[in-house]
């Protein structure tokens, strides 16, 4: 009997409950279903190869997500350098609130962002996060798809907590700007007074 079998079976049993989460993060990183599936499979392959380094009793999900993001970065570097579709320097704080206020789209009830965001589909939000430069996309994908604290994301990305904080805060501003552009282009955000009945 192959001595690795019990260890590999354990890997599968650890992977199964987190597979949907891993696929969700992979989809936000890779931006399409086929590439996301490939990414998860590649991560599983690498996880099997490196399973001897996993310490039983520690956070398997964080360990696997570290491999997943490393696989993403590896694939990303193999492919052509993607053009950055967002102006990183030009995204002010509270961007969406400022634009929504300007266009009379702030709801003063319990869901203040509903007039801007409720009409945007999942595909629009996914496209906006997919358009973020890679380092922001990775931090935001982990942040939005999982309920992770900054230090947990830092552990996955093997970087300082301050770097995660900076990427998340900035990434969210970029995301808000991108979402506003999508909303405007799709006619969701129509200047007050010109809206059709």
């Amino acid at each position: 009997m192959d001595g690795n079998l019990p260890r590999a079976a354990t890997l599968e049993s650890l992977l199964e409950p987190i597979l949907a989460s891993a696929y969700g993060v992979a989809l936000r990183l890779a931006r399409n279903r086929n590439d996301a599936e490939d990414l998860v499979q590649e991560a599983a392959f690498q996880a099997c190869r490196g399973f001897h380094t996993f310490q039983p009793g520690t956070n398997f999900k964080a360990w696997f997500f570290r491999i997943l993001t490393n696989c993403f970065y590896y694939r990303y570097r193999l492919k052509r350098r993607e053009p950055e579709t967002v102006d990183v320097e030009d995204a002010q704080e509270l961007y969406l609130l400022l634009k929504a206020t300007e266009h009379g789209l702030v709801d003063h009830g319990a869901d203040p962002a509903s007039k801007v965001l409720d009409k945007l589909g999942e595909e629009h939000v996914a496209a906006a996060i997919g358009a973020l430069p890679a380092e922001f996309r990775v931090a935001c994908a982990l942040y939005f798809m999982e309920d992770l604290k900054y230090d947990e994301i830092a552990s996955i990305l093997e970087c300082p907590v301050g770097t995660v904080r900076s990427r998340l805060h900035r990434g969210r501003r970029l995301l808000q700007k991108a979402l506003w552009q999508v909303a405007f282009e799709r006619g969701v955000a129509v200047p007050q007074g010109t809206e059709q009945p």
Binding site: L19, A20, Y23, G24, L27, R28, R33, E37, L94, L96, L97, A100, V106, D111, P112, A113, S114, L117, D118, L120, G121, E122, V125, A126, I129, F144, M145, R172, L175, Q176
Partner: peptide, 20 residues
């Protein structure tokens, strides 16, 4: 309230995924 609502709504939309 606006910022918190934006993040809640984005989480809700982004997490609507069915794994193959």
């Amino acid at each position: 309230a606006f910022e918190a609502d934006v993040l809640d709504k984005l989480r809700g939309k982004l997490r609507r995924i069915d794994a193959p």
